[in-house]
Nucleic acid binder design. Structure first.
Length: 873
RNA sequence: GGGCGCGUAGCUCAGUGGGAGAGCGCUCGCUUCACACGCGAGAGGUCGCUGGUUCGAAACCAGCCGCGCCCACCA
């Protein structure tokens, strides 16, 4: 270590992540360690495809947790020597990106429609080149070790080829087709959107009861005269859609309506003859028990209509205005105007039988925020049944493990009743469907066929269509000889949040099986959603969002990573800044503990350190060295196993416990005397060796979780075998270093030290005062005297207290009354323990039925408590 | 309505059959030569409620109360 660096180490008493993180990250990039060669087999290699963030996106807490988890896995496997690749890329995010650019243009007074499709798309590309890299840069702040040199985009050239190939094949298999179907029309976007892009909002509408006169039954003049043929009253919150009603439905078991099934009603204002049909769907206990059927404007009615072969009438157009299918006087009105006009006319004709406020959930567009208008429209669909079947099988057979199990059930649940997927969107930004029309002819393929007059379909594909190909299209598919594809596909794990299991994960599994014949990943790990501290969703519009970059700014990336991991779980969790601060404190602790070691370790030369380290566990090294080596093995095991079973909270907290409580609070305090030496004792170089040996391993262990501080400290190690900690071998637990004797011995010494300190505190002994003491049995470990400030051996005075077999002797300034109180307290505790043990062992059922080792343990404890009680008198 | 899950210290959460844990907060004491983002000690919990299973239940089962998420959604 040169003088300058040593000076920096001496004077920097706090971990200051700001400039260090940037410098460390640049070193990683220069080292090229995140950019693996496309070699080897997918079985030997390790790869993860990142859930591609939207190009328009900014890093939010969800990304931060998702990215941290993947980076932990990636770094662990890279350090374990696997050829490791984290596949990076962004999603073109059709709707989101189009809206952003559209808004930006609107601010300049330019409308998308004025610009025309080609020019608008050019503007979007321009935007992407200017701003599309923001989120990728933000992932770097987090420390994400993605392969930044192989970044992909769902609209880059090769990716488009993959998308078109998939579309064409699904079309030729007959899975993709065009049909009139009820879609969720977003009047704001002027596009169909999927069920999954909806959000329900509570709305209070007016529920109108409207009378529909029944048509007289021919040949029953008497009845006609008597009852005016009667009427059916139906309830609706959308009177304007009555213009498109084509039937009335009642429940077949509803006695009130048994006689009217098969007859006809007359649609007021329009005059259409409406058959009265019977369908189980109609609830007898809601409204009047009679339901108007509007196949053109209601998803349920649409299904009933198809089932009964009803006419489908659309009176609301894609522009949100009343169409020519409605009576002339309503045409061209907005939905709201039409509603008022219809109600007014009905009122005039005396057909309104009731009205009341009605609060219900109504779907709104997640994207534009507008109320969804269910419409029948000509769209492209993909039938999912054939694709779903093998995708269910790989999960039930365990070829794809979905963790946790709740997420697995959610997946299977959804797949069981999968429905056709509407894959067309009326947008400009996206993959334009590879479909060409000329008159009545339709051709599907990336390029138009020979000849004049072919026009390409104007719709684009749902963004999720391209995302569904992510794990293989990013690696070069459909070129199955592409080096990246042969080396890294299938990937190992997909890390994601619960909300897109159906939207995305399921579809990746389906397309991957269909097109590559392989599962895209063997594990799906579904992690928490981070909520705002008050339990609401973190969202920009609610103002509940917390920006991970702000947290990195304040506490450092390692702190945020640790905090997110520690708070993560399979449940949704509330964001806890305290956990992030815990991470910051741990990073600081690592920095300072490392300073202690690095500034004080005696290093003759590299060979000496290696030689000393080689005998860390030898019998003749001090027991505390064997203890820390043994505890380290246990920490390595627990942290590694936790990560491997995706239990990141325990990995983080176990690391914390080992580092803070065992290494810092005990081992470093114990070893200081040997490290510094004093008048009597020379400096012990074995201590230095153990410290350096331990430090190197614990840094490596912590590195996947907290890469920056560990990498920085690693650069100060006097002896290190790797260019960077990022590519240093990950420690493996060594069973030979487990030393139960040393653990028991130091464990007992720790217990005793704590008991003595407790006594001191309760007795009000000043912190600096050294107490005289006498051990009843053999002298405790040297560390007890030092750490508890107790001097053993020399005193002859009377014992004023006994603590865990140690007699504390009368010492000037120590209050004997407090001591007696303390002893009495201990006696009381022992008596209750003895009582508890006797009661338990006196229980015949317990002795007879509990496992022998549990019973033996109880007996052992009881003996020990009795012995101590006797000793106290 | 169906499915899944949660209810443990003041707060955020671990703990899944054998003596209730962590972090933060709180109290007391420490300018102890790595760290006050620190060190030492401590207080604080009828583990939502009621039954049941068991020698033994925070944990397993049933019911109830409260909360959340996902599906399906009554016009």
């Amino acid at each position: 270590m040169d003088a300058e660096r040593r000076k920096a180490l001496e004077t920097t008493t706090r971990w200051e992540p700001g400039e260090v993180e940037q410098r460390v990250f640049e070193r990683w990039m220069e080292g090229g360690w995140f950019h693996p060669p496309a070699e080897g087999t997918p079985e030997a290699n390790y790869s993860i495809a990142i859930p591609p963030p939207n190009v328009t996106g900014a890093l939010h807490m969800g990304h931060a947790l998702n990215g941290t988890i993947q980076d932990v896995l990636i770094r662990l496997h890279r350090m374990q020597g696997r050829n490791t690749m984290w596949i990076l890329g962004t999603d073109h995010a059709g709707i989101a990106t189009q809206s952003v650019v559209e808004k930006e243009l609107a601010a300049q007074g330019v409308l998308r429609t004025e610009l025309g499709r080609d020019q608008f798309i050019a503007k979007v590309w321009e935007w992407r080149h200017l701003h599309g890299n923001t989120i990728v840069e933000q992932y770097k702040r987090l420390g994400a070790s993605c392969d930044y040199e192989r970044e992909r985009f769902t609209l880059d050239e090769g990716y488009v080829t993959a998308v078109y190939r998939v579309f064409a094949e699904l079309y030729s298999k007959g899975y993709i087709y065009r049909d009139n179907y009820m879609v969720n029309w977003d009047p704001g976007l002027q596009s169909a959107i999927s069920d999954l892009e909806l959000e329900d909002r509570e709305v209070t509408d007016t529920l109108y009861q409207i009378a529909y006169p029944l048509e007289a039954v021919r040949g029953h003049e008497a009845e006609e005269a008597a009852a005016d043929a009667g009427e059916l009253v139906v309830a609706t919150v959308r009177p304007e859609t009555m213009l498109a009603v084509t039937a009335i439905a009642v429940n077949p078991r509803d006695d009130r309506y048994r006689d009217v099934v098969g007859r006809h009603a007359i649609l007021p204002l329009v005059g259409r003859r409406l058959p009265v049909i019977a369908d189980e769907y109609v609830k007898t206990d809601f409204g009047t028990g009679a339901l108007k059927i509007t196949p053109g404007h209601d998803p349920n009615d649409f299904e009933i209509g198809r089932m009964h072969g009803l006419e489908e009438v659309s009176v609301i157009g894609e522009d949100g205005l009343i169409t020519e299918n409605a009576p002339e006087r309503f045409r061209g009105m907005t939905v709201t105007q039409a509603r008022e006009a219809v109600v007014a006319e009905l009122r005039e004709q005396g057909l309104i039988r009731g009205e009341e406020p009605y609060t219900h959930d109504v779907p709104f567009s997640h994207r534009s925020g507008e109320r969804i208008e269910p419409l029948i429209s000509l769209q492209w669909f993909c039938r999912m049944n054939e694709l779903a079947e093998p995708a269910v099988r790989v999960v039930t057979e365990g070829r794809v493990r979905i963790i946790p199990d709740g997420a697995r059930r959610q997946y299977l649940n959804w797949m069981e009743r999968i429905r056709p997927w509407c894959i067309s969107r009326q947008l400009w930004w996206g993959h334009r469907l590879p479909v060409w029309y000329r008159g009545d002819e339709t051709y599907v393929g990336e390029h138009p066929p020979e000849g004049e007059g072919w026009e390409q379909e104007s719709d684009v594909l749902d963004t999720w269509f391209s995302s569904a190909l992510w794990p293989f299209a990013t690696l070069g598919w459909p070129d199955t000889d592409a080096p990246e594809f042969t080396a890294f596909f299938p990937t190992d794990v997909m890390v994601t949040a619960r909300d897109i299991i159906n939207l995305w994960v399921a579809r990746m599994i389906m397309t991957s099986l269909e097109f590559t014949g392989k599962v895209p990943f063997s594990d799906v790990y579904v992690h928490s959603v981070i909520q705002a501290p008050d339990g609401r969703r973190m969202s920009k519009s609610l103002g509940t969002g917390i920006d991970p970059l702000d947290e990195i700014e304040v506490h450092g990336a390692d702190a945020l990573r640790f905090g997110l991991l520690a708070m993560s779980s399979t449940q949704d969790v509330r964001y806890s800044e305290a956990r992030v601060q815990q991470g910051r404190d741990l990073a600081n602790k690592m920095w300072n503990a490392s300073r202690l070691i690095l500034l004080n370790a005696q290093v003759a030369d590299a060979a000496a350190v290696r030689a000393a380290a080689a005998k860390v566990a030898a019998d003749d090294v001090p027991v505390e060295d064997r203890w820390i080596a043994s505890r380290l093995q246990r920490a390595i095991t627990s942290v590694t196993e936790s990560i491997e079973r995706y239990d990141f909270a325990h990995a983080a907290l176990d690391l914390y416990d080992f580092f803070w409580s065992e290494l810092c609070d005990w081992y470093l305090e114990i070893v200081k005397a040997r490290l510094y030496g004093d008048d009597d004792e020379p400096v012990d170089s074995a201590a230095s060796a153990t410290l350096l040996w331990t430090l190197e391993r614990v840094l490596a262990l912590a590195h996947p979780l907290m890469p920056f501080v560990t990498e920085e400290v690693y650069s100060y190690l006097p002896v290190s075998e790797s260019e960077a900690l990022a590519v240093h071998p990950f420690p493996e637990p060594d069973p030979d270093l487990i030393d139960e004797g040393a653990e028991a011995e130091i464990g007992a010494a720790i217990e005793l030290t704590r008991a003595l300190r407790r006594w001191r505190d309760l007795a009000g002994v000043p912190a600096a005062q050294v107490l005289s003491a006498r051990a009843n049995g053999s002298d405790p470990h040297e560390l007890v005297g030092r750490l508890a400030r107790v001097e053993f051996g020399s005193g002859h005075g009377e014992a004023i207290a006994t603590v865990e077999g140690v007699e504390l002797l009368e010492t000037e300034g120590v209050d004997p009354d407090a001591a007696r109180a303390r002893i009495e307290e201990r006696r009381a505790k022992l008596r209750s323990e003895v009582e508890r043990g006797e009661r338990k062992l006196g229980n015949e059922g317990f002795v007879a039925k509990a496992p022998a080792d549990v019973v033996d343990e109880e007996r052992r404890k009881l003996e020990a408590y009795r012995a101590e009680l006797d000793e106290l008198g």
